[in-house]
Design a protein around this nucleic acid. Structure first.
Lengths: 232, 232
DNA sequence: TGATGCAATTGATATATGTCAATTACATCA
DNA sequence: TGATGTAATTGACATATATCAATTGCATCA
């Protein structure tokens, strides 16, 4: 663990309110690892004895069934995984693979459980984090079951625009085939969905997105805070 | 709160390991309510100041968007809701409506939070419960994104067969249109999917299901513990 | 017991989405 | 800079799923 990583970790939701003693106990027990892109960090079905925290880079959580694979989400700096499996001492439901060069902190599950018992603020943060993740997945199910793929794409663009600062021009930040998988569609259909959004003021060229008529896009997307607002 | 309800509550996962004092403090603060069928208990978008616990009956959690509605899950005796919204003090992402005459316990959110601070075992149980719910939803997403509607139905039948005791004859226990909604399909398509399963030894007449060739059905369903086992 | 209302089914059709094959665009690297 | 490999796109087509309309089945109750 490098000293320079510590403030970054300390500022994360999961750790920022906890006791100083507990925090240093946790960080003493933690490992830091750097990974190149395209590395599988954890495997669906395996047990996982470490809570993982992304410090830098990005990765995808994905799952397989019957020779098909689907991406469930992209995690970036500051995200934790896989808390639920660690907490329940259960097999991972998802695999994780780095997309970029990534730095990850790994805290032994036992230490997490131990500090959980000692430090109320940490316990509270774990509960908040789990509830946050739960709500995120519920929003995903609502989007999948209630929207067409074009509507999901439209809402994804609006959400990502906001996340990247709100400018009308921004970058996708992810390969299109992964985006397609996250949105629950094929790459071919994503291409076609992007064309379909052109009359709604969406111009996508490679990684560059420009939204020229936000109102038209919102008219199609009908974003709802109960599906699309990550904070709600 | 009736005295006769107390042992039932005490035996639930969320409460069974907690301190006796904390438990009686929680139950003192709790309300019990009986509801007829088809009553909306909580509404998507509202705040919810109570943790709910099903004591008897059944209800569905559902959500709406753009004039469409989808059922997310059916809850039966022993289930809690909506813990994540209570914990985060956030608006409900789902509505809840009774399907049968139901008895529900309501514990004020403040009391839950207070006992959470005092009682380690309860805190641990809350975390376990949240992680359990999270994993349930993740399994649902995997099923939705990786399987066809026929495969989802086949796996539902196998899972429900196991849950009801494993006999080759059992009852569906839910209206077909609700089942269709949960599985992410229309009632019309559920009817057709049921027909499609006939060559795989599935006979459904009204509420009565008979599985005459479990191996054939499993061959189609390809059940996986990482999607279909509620305990995994 | 017949009338009523709603769930379930069925058939016809429309739409959404996936698959396959071919091509183009683009990045990487020798 | 050209060769190579992979992502992205496109078109043709297949399949899955939804929609609409009509009918049937079934439970309820006056």
């Amino acid at each position: 663990m490098r000293v320079s990583d510590i403030p970054k970790i300390r500022s994360l939701m999961l750790f920022k309110d906890m006791d100083e003693d507990s925090f240093s106990e946790l960080t003493r027990a933690a490992y830091v690892q750097d990974f190149p892109p395209q590395v599988d960090l954890i495997l669906e079905g395996d047990r996982c004895d470490f809570l993982h925290i992304m410090i830098d880079g990005s990765l995808e959580l994905f799952a397989e069934w019957n020779r098909h694979e689907t991406a469930l989400t992209i995690l970036r700096s500051g995200a934790t995984f896989i808390l639920a499996a660690v907490v329940r001492d259960a097999p991972n439901l998802m695999s994780a693979r780095t997309l970029e060069k990534s730095r990850v902190i790994m805290i032994p599950a036992e230490d997490v459980r131990e500090i959980f018992q000692k430090d109320h603020e940490f316990a509270r943060a774990v509960v908040m984090e789990l509830a946050y993740c739960y709500r995120g997945v519920v929003k995903g199910v609502k989007s999948l079951k209630l929207r067409t793929s074009i509507e999901r794409l439209a809402n994804y663009l609006l959400k990502w625009q906001k996340k990247t600062g709100g400018s009308d021009s921004f970058t996708l930040g992810i390969e299109k085939r992964r985006l397609a998988s996250i949105l629950g569609m094929t790459p071919e259909n994503l291409s076609r969905a992007i064309k379909t959004l052109r009359p709604y003021g969406v111009e996508i060229d490679g990684q560059n997105v420009k939204i020229t008529d936000p109102d038209a896009l919102k008219g199609l997307a009908k974003p709802s805070p109960l599906i699309d607002d990550p904070r709600s």
